[in-house]
Design a protein around this nucleic acid. Structure first.
Length: 857
DNA sequence: GCAAGGTC
């Protein structure tokens, strides 16, 4: 029997499609990467009985990046990223081993396979990436491109999937190319601008509150929306206006407040004139009474962006958090797939079944029972984007099993679902038109007829109002009060997250899956902060950036920046434009924009100067520069660094910790004063030389290394002086004595988070020259306090191996990990001669200076 | 350390 391979774009799709095509009769097993399943069944293909093997990829197989050397920010001019810098495709998620998984899957089949997908983007990335991945296998002749088919469907329903199978198409290289082009454009443009502006502003200002000043075709317009609203608020000038306030009554009824038909006037004199005209009459005549029954429509089925909007505005949950919760609810089987643009239930969707699941939940049991007995209302027609069915509850749940936020989101999704099959909300709108003198007024009110779906979504309900009086044309009311009231227009408020989502959706910025990411980005980069009511308030940095773009090249921040490029890309997909030409043309435009931006940066700088202080004026003196021997300033704002204003040089420092001066000791290589880095929580610390940290002195050292990784053969602060032995957990780390840790002495791995506590109440701990015969670790000499020594017979001094010495063993306590190191006379084990740390280099250098020279780059 | 896009 022949075997046909089918590849869907994600595991959930493979599952549901295999279920449909096999009519529920398929076997399922996990693939070698643990994420994708392989589903098998027997069926018919082109008139033959064949074995179908259905599997999937898991998002994109490949992603694009620059080749290694172009990722060095210091050595590459960002302008080179537009053309010179070569890119390469890398496996998007190496852990999944997708390429190997596909190749193995393919080897076992006969030369036919399908690619299944619902949208162009998904399809193209899938098709081209799968084809690329299996190219080596294809060349061996087992599969030719002609035997690759594409099944394109617009919804995951029996009919649609079967139709797709019966009308197989061919992969479309153009669509794939258009996706490739977008990827390359986003990468080159985004990275070039990000690197340039980050480096430029970071080198100039000391109190920028962001370590990365990013730019991107989605995130920047997203920020633009927030700043646009900020500008409206700032430039808002309140205007005074006047309204006529009129109250009338009839008999003993309570008075009615009327709305003026002219609404308002901006001139007091004019307003007064109208009041005078109205005051000519003491009575209000009822001109007409209208009563209309109106409907408030039940909601459409729920898609992702609507869920995100409501979660933000009503539940106070941010989009990123909401998606995490939704993902969890989905994998636990409580709700359907949470990423969808579709607001239309598939034809065969079992609405009743889904509703029945909810019959025992006391919150909505009554409504559910009523619906099941009277019949479900037909859901409103929505749009079918062809991706996944709308978001619906899949099984009953309780607050206890879901946890607070999980339950709140589930509750909303369920209420929304029930609402979609409920009746519309019906109400009566009554409007009474009055005339007082020459002026027309009216008053209107809504009375609930039937709550319909608002019983489940009470926040959308008709507010209870005082009933409208019964009256008819010709009735007369007495004027109780009529006066001119002065009011002021008020500014708009900051953009809410929900409004931002709407704007992004409208302008095609991001997708259902990426909108939360972009919003999260502008928060993390400190461009906006989330205020009460999930309103997004731009920071100084965010405002200055956007104003700067407006000043130099507004297109960089306008939402059209994306749509213009999209148009070009679309031409590639349609085969009307050439991939290379569009890519070159667009890159050319943006390269010019980039150079113009670089040239105009001084005008953006004028804005920065107002909000931020120059680096030389920031920070406090901390340690001495090795070149000019003047004090350098420590700039605490992220990214924390040292700045020598005399040399005009900036030296980076390790982040997320505190920096202190380290006993005024100096690095023997460059004379810079050492500083001590201390992490807060873990209590790990090590000294470092500010110069070596950015400019590694030896060939086996990399940027960002402290003295605890320094291979200097003789320096008293180096790994060679304080290194004790191999890390007990990680492969390449060395446990290094922390010379500042006393009196509770400890050693810490110079690569991972392992910290080993050893001697308490010791006033001196030293790493000896000798090493342990059993495990090769350096011996440690300890001097305990006389009164609190743990040594037998009140001894105060002892030298031994911390791992093997019977006296020391019990004093060693490993934190964050379990001990794997051989203890007490155990056999020798790995590490010897692996070239690690001090003990990996068994021969001690005879001539220290010669060794030193050999080390230099 | 950069983009945006999928998904786990």
């Amino acid at each position: 029997m022949k075997t046909v391979l089918m590849v869907a774009e994600k595991p959930s799709l493979a599952q549901s499609i295999a279920k449909i095509l096999s009519k529920g009769n398929c076997t399922s097993r996990k693939g070698l990467n643990g994420a994708c399943s392989v589903l098998e069944y027997t069926g018919s293909f082109q008139g033959q009985t064949v074995r179908f093997k259905m599997t999937s990829v898991c998002g994109h197989v490949m992603s694009l990046d620059f080749i290694g050397k172009y990722n060095n920010w210091d050595k590459v001019d960002p302008a080179e990223l537009f053309s010179q810098a070569p890119t390469e495709k890398k496996e998007a998620n190496p852990k999944l081993n997708m390429v190997k998984f596909l190749q193995v899957g393919l080897r076992a089949i006969d030369p036919v396979f399908y690619i299944l997908s619902h949208n162009i983007d998904g399809y193209s990335s899938l098709a081209s990436q799968v084809l690329d991945a299996i190219q080596p296998v294809m060349n061996k002749g087992s599969v030719r491109e002609q035997s690759v088919y594409r099944a394109k469907f617009s919804s995951i329903t029996d009919t649609d999937i079967w139709n797709a199978m019966n009308r197989l198409g061919e992969p479309n290289r153009n669509e794939a190319l258009s996706v490739d082009a977008r990827q390359e454009l986003d990468l080159r443009i985004g990275c070039a601008f990000t690197r340039f502006q980050t480096k430029y502003f970071q080198g100039k200002y000391g109190n920028l509150d962001s370590s990365l000043i990013s730019f991107g075709p989605c995130q920047t317009p997203t920020l633009g929306f927030c700043v646009e609203r900020h500008d409206k608020i700032q430039s808002f000038k309140p205007e005074t206006y006047w309204v006529i306030q009129a109250k009338v009554f009839k008999g003993k009824d309570s008075p009615l407040t009327l709305d003026w038909h002219r609404v308002r006037v901006f001139d007091r004199e004019v307003g007064q004139m109208f009041v005078n005209l109205a005051k000519t009459s003491r009575e209000a005549q009822v001109e007409s009474v209208s009563k209309k029954e109106k409907a408030k429509q039940r909601p459409q089925a729920l898609n992702t962006v609507e869920m995100l909007r409501v979660a933000s505005s009503a539940l106070g949950m941010g989009p990123q958090h909401t998606m995490q919760i939704a993902e969890r609810l989905y994998t636990q089987g409580y709700i359907s797939y949470p990423r969808t643009e579709t607001t239309h239930y598939p034809e065969n969707f079992d609405l009743k079944g889904a509703l029945k699941q909810q019959i025992n939940n006391c919150i909505w049991a009554e409504e559910v029972k009523a619906l099941l007995s009277t019949g479900l209302n037909r859901p409103r027609k929505g749009t079918d984007a062809g991706d996944h069915p709308p978001i619906t509850p899949m099984r009953a749940a309780s607050e206890a099993e879901l946890g607070s936020d999980g339950w709140r989101l589930y509750e909303y999704i369920t209420r929304h679902f029930i609402a979609t099959v409920s009746q519309d909300c019906m109400y009566l709108q009554t409007t009474i038109d009055f005339k007082i003198g020459t002026e027309a007024f009216s008053c209107s009110g809504k009375t609930l007829v039937s709550a319909g779906y608002t019983a489940l979504m009470p926040w959308q309900g008709i507010p209870l109002e005082e009933a409208m009086p019964t009256c008819e044309h010709g009735d007369t009311y007495t004027v109780d009060e009529i006066k001119l009231v002065e009011k002021q227009t008020s500014p708009p408020d900051y953009l809410t997250e929900a409004e931002l989502i709407t704007l992004m959706e409208k302008h095609g910025i991001g997708t259902d899956a990426s909108i939360p990411v972009h919003i999260n980005n502008i928060c993390q980069r400190n461009y906006v902060t989330v205020e009460n009511g999930r309103k997004l308030k731009p920071t100084n940095l965010g405002i200055v950036l956007v104003h700067g773009y407006y000043k130099t090249d507004a297109e960089l921040v306008l939402p059209t920046i994306r749509s213009a490029v999209e148009k070009q890309l679309n031409l590639i997909a349609l085969g009307k434009a050439n991939f290379q030409q569009v890519l070159q043309h667009t890159l050319d435009i943006f390269k010019r924009k980039f150079h113009y931006f670089v040239d105009s940066i001084p005008s953006m700088d004028e804005l920065m100067e107002v909000s931020f202080s120059p680096i030389a004026a920031t920070g406090k003196p901390l340690s001495r520069c090795g070149k000019c021997h003047r004090f350098m300033k420590y700039i605490q704002a992220k990214p924390s660094r040292l700045h020598c204003s005399h040399c005009d040089e900036t030296y980076s420092l390790p982040q997320n910790g505190a920096i202190k001066l380290y006993k005024e000791l100096r690095c023997p290589l460059d004379d810079f004063e050492l500083v001590l880095w201390t992490s807060g929580a873990r209590g790990k610390s090590y000294p470092l030389c500010p110069y070596c940290f950015s400019n590694p002195p030896f060939r086996d050292m990399k940027k960002g290394m402290g003295c605890n990784e320094c291979t200097h053969p003789s320096c008293q602060h180096s790994l060679n002086s304080y290194g004790i032995g191999q890390c007990v957990e990680c492969e390449s780390g060395v446990l290094v004595l922390d010379p500042t840790s006393g009196p509770k002495w400890r050693m810490a791995c110079n690569k991972c988070n392992v910290v080993v506590h050893f001697f308490e109440h010791a006033h001196r701990v030293q790493v000896a020259q000798e090493s342990c015969d059993a495990c090769d670790a350096s011996l440690v000499a300890v001097d305990f306090n006389k009164t609190r020594t743990p040594l037998p017979a009140g001894e105060t001094q002892h030298t031994g191996c911390v791992f093997c010495d019977p006296v020391f063993q019990n004093l060693v306590e490993l934190k964050h990990a379990t001990m794997r190191h051989p203890r007490g006379g155990g056999a020798r084990r790995g590490g010897r001669g692996r070239g690690r740390g001090r003990r990996g280099n068994p021969k001690k250098p005879k001539d220290k200076m010669a060794a030193l020279a050999a080390y230099f780059v």
